[in-house]
Structure formats: C-alpha cells, structure tokens
Write a protein that binds this DNA or RNA. Structure first.
Length: 420
RNA sequence: GUGGACGUAGCUCAGCUGGUAGAGCACCCGGUUGUGGUCCGGGAUGUCGCGGGUUCGAGCCCCGUCGUUCACCCCA
C-alpha cells in the first residue's frame, strides 16, 4: 500500500517549503508592523457559526464545507474561511470591550471541498486581519494598504486592485429590487436563473461573453448608494490616492460571502490563470451581531499564501536560497563526533547556526554535503585538531582558510558573520 | 459537481505500426591516506499510478479506478 496525500491538498516540502515560509512571513510582517495581534484559532468550529456567519445560501456553505459529527453528536465544520472564526474569538474573549478597533490577525489552513485546480486546493493557506469596532474610511484604506504592502514586499508587480462599495442595507435592498426585475427580462438558462435567485449579484461575475453583454446595461449597486455610504466610499478612494495605491473601481465585482457590506476589494494577479484572486476582503457591518456579539462594524481581508507564492514564482521574484547554516562541522571518527556535538551546541547557544556531517562518508563526500547545504564555513575535526585544539576555518565561497582555536571559535565566527 | 488532457527512475522527460525500459539532472564510490564547486571513470535505482480485459506477447490498445492538470463553477 502506497499512501499519498489526500486529494487536492497543497503540501510544501524542501526546497519549495522555504519559498512558502518566505511568502507567509513576508505577508505577516506587513501585518505585524501595523499593530495587529495574533489570534491562534481552532481549524474546526460549530457548523452553525459558518451557516449563520458566512450565509447558508453561499456556495461555500451550501456545497463546499467539510462537515462531520463528533463523538458527542455535535456538528463540526473545518473552517472554510477565517473571518467568522476570528470574530467568534473576539466576542468570546471580550476583545471588543477594550480599545477599538480590536485588531487581530490569523494565519493557517482552511478547507473547502471543491474540485482542485492550480491555485485552488481543498486545504489551502491564508493570512488575514480583522479590525472591529470603528467605522472610518481611513481604516478601510489602511486595511487595503496593508495587503498591498504585503504583496509589494513579496516583489509582486503584475497585479491590480479592484474596489467597490456594497453600501449599507438600504442601498442594497433598493438595488436588489431593480436588479431582480432587470434579470427577469433576460433570456437565461436554468442553471444561471437558479444562481441569480441565490444571489443576483453573481451574474455580474459570469465569464460568458453573452451574459456579460446582457449584464452591461444592468443597474449598478454603486448608483444606489445612500448618502453616507457614498461619502464613505469617496473618502476611502481619496485616502488610497494619497497613499498612491493604484486601484480601479469595479462595480461588477462580486464576493462570494454574504456578510460583506461597504468597501470591498480584491487583489487579482495577471499571470495566474483562472484562480487569480490573491487576496480580498471588505467590511461587514452586521456580522458581529449576526453571530451573537455587539452591533459593531468591522473590516478585514484574507490573503492566499498558496496563490501569492504561485504569483511570486510566476514573476520570478522568489529569493534564491541564502546560506543555510553558518558552520558545517565534519568530524572524523567517534571521538571527534562527540567534540563536534559539544561545539555545535555552544555555537547555537551563541546564535550561530551549525550542522554536523553524520554517518561515515568520505571526507570528500562530507565536503560535498557541506557545499550542498550552502554552509558558510566548514571545519574538519580530525585527530590532529583534537590534539592541538587548532582548526582550519574554511570560508566556502572563497576557499580561503584561517587558523582558529577552540576557545576563540565563537568570537571569531561572530565577528566574521557580522561583517558580512 | 460537469467537461477535456495527462500519469514511465527522487526530478524533467524520451520510448517508432504492440516484441521483455532509456537519457539528462540528482544520488553513491573512485581518480587526490584529511578538504567542496569544474573535469574524468564507475555504480545503484523502476510492481511503466492501480485493477481488470484483448493478444502468443501490453509502457503502448480497451474498460474501470485513483491522482494531477486545464476550463466551467467558485474563491484564497
């Protein structure tokens, strides 16, 4: 029996796992520099949290959730997205009772039972933030700018930002009446009509040319915004302009989760094929209350780590491997190994990374391994070195060696490494 | 969930109208009693995704299945 990973999961193993770490940590850096704090959350929740929060009519909830019954008969679901779980924790731990906005971030894997495809997995990785409790266009703009900064920090250039406003409840109700009436006049197939009944906005997102043409004259939600929603959206735009973040207003943008209100946005990469959304988010005025919290507004985003990595690879901006370890120790013989273990431990205590050549391969083989590991320095520990307490410290890039004593090793390396 | 393409060594792939499986890279050893990258010589490696069928004979043809991939759908 040969086991393989379950269908459609994204796995990262060396050497690519390094690029994955880099992607994740780069995106996180931008978030941490903005005062967001970690919420480390369960990957499964009460199923009802998602049906209420995300919306029972959404595709995500109606056909893409991994749901099961636990041994106590509870209905449990593997989280398909991050926002409602994060808000559940905010409410449960009273983070919304302190200074507002409460600002949290999360990172980890999410699960959707979809047909896998490049950039779409059944288990995928996202990083996201949520800012709860303050309604301020400047906050919206900052949230967008944090995501933008993260993508730019990765070195991405070939992506664009689409924004729109879904307005408030009144705006949407008025628009929906007119939109539904308009759609009824169209000649559509059965599946599309069903889709429109679930969420008429979906038709704006249809990829078929004929549907796009029909929808060209459809009423646009932006035209129905209330005075306050319009003012808010205009303010967000002016802040984005001040930040010099390029964006385009896309009134046809559709988000698949029911809770979005107000400012919504999407980052789309140009080189990625069908699954090109690398991040997106928006406001959610009613969500806190919907899942049992105070009536507070909020806004956040989720960024796809898998897709950001694919984008970085497509743009060829993933940095090549740095030196793996500072020092590679090659002990010759059993006594030398014991010494190598002791030396490497003390080096690591001094924050110098160090690895040892294990096994009994030839010196040539061990040197090749050292080279492969991309270690910066190498020391061979043989009988003469053990006897004299002096080694040759070899700098691999240049091939030059210098003589070092055991007692001065840490200091010498610290000096050498800080210079570089 | 629907449709198309593809599954051969660790990786990338070749394999003719069906005749008993190969290359490059990587790996190991040696050329140099204890110093890597280049070079030279040598070496190991496959249930040809899996299961069935057709055939004297299947990597190649047929069916099923699992997986990958592209698109729809959906979204990170």
């Amino acid at each position: 029996m040969k086991f393989q990973a379950p269908k459609g999961v994204s796995e990262y193993v060396p050497p690519r796992s390094r690029a994955f770490e880099w992607t994740r940590d780069t995106l996180l850096r931008s978030i941490k520099h903005s005062g967001y704090q970690l919420v480390e959350l369960p990957v499964f929740e009460d199923t009802e949290l998602f049906t209420r929060g995300v919306g029972a009519s959404t595709d995500v909830v109606s056909k893409e959730m991994y749901t099961f019954e636990d041994r106590g008969g509870r209905s449990i679901t593997l989280r398909p997205e991050g926002t409602v779980g994060a808000l559940r924790a905010v409410i449960e731990h009273g983070l919304d009772r302190g200074v507002l906005p409460a600002k949290v971030f999360y990172v980890g894997q999410f699960f959707r039972a979809e047909r896998p495809q490049a950039g779409r997995y059944r288990q995928f990785y996202s990083v996201g933030i949520e800012a709860v409790g303050v309604d301020d266009p400047a906050l919206d703009a900052e949230v967008i700018s944090i995501a933008y900064a993260g993508f730019r920090a990765l070195g991405l250039k070939q992506f664009h930002l689409d924004i729109t406003s879904l307005g408030d409840g009144q705006s949407r109700a008025a628009h929906k009446v007119d939109l539904v009436a308009f759609i009824k006049t169209l000649d559509l197939d059965e599946a599309t009509i069903v889709r429109a009944q679930l969420n008429p906005l979906r038709l704006f997102d249809d990829k078929r040319e004929e549907v796009r043409a029909m929808m060209a004259t459809a009423p646009i939600l932006l035209d129905y915004l209330s005075e306050s929603s319009r003012a808010h959206f205009l303010a967000v735009q002016s802040h984005l302009k001040a930040l010099e973040i390029p964006f385009s207003i896309n009134p046809r943008m559709v988000r698949g989760l029911d809770y979005y209100t107000g400012t919504t946005f999407e980052f789309v990469h140009d080189l990625l094929g069908a699954q090109s959304g690398i991040g997106g988010g928006g406001g959610y005025a009613g969500l806190m209350e919907e899942i049992g919290g105070q009536s507070l507004p909020g806004i956040g985003f989720g960024l796809g780590i898998d897709r950001a990595l694919l984008a970085a690879e497509a743009e060829n901006v993933v940095p090549t491997a740095e030196f793996a370890s500072d020092l590679y120790l090659i002990p010759l013989g059993a006594a030398a190994k014991s010494t190598a273990l002791i030396i490497s431990e003390s080096l690591r205590d001094s924050n110098i990374s160090c690895e040892i050549a294990f096994g009994d391969r030839s010196l040539k083989g061990a040197m090749k391994a050292a080279d492969k590991s991309r270690a910066r320095y190498v020391i061979v520990l043989g009988e003469s070195e053990l006897a004299s307490g002096e080694f040759e410290l070899k700098h691999m890039a240049s091939g030059s060696t210098s003589s070092v004593t055991l007692t001065s090793l840490v200091q010498t390396l610290q000096q050498a490494l800080s210079v570089i």
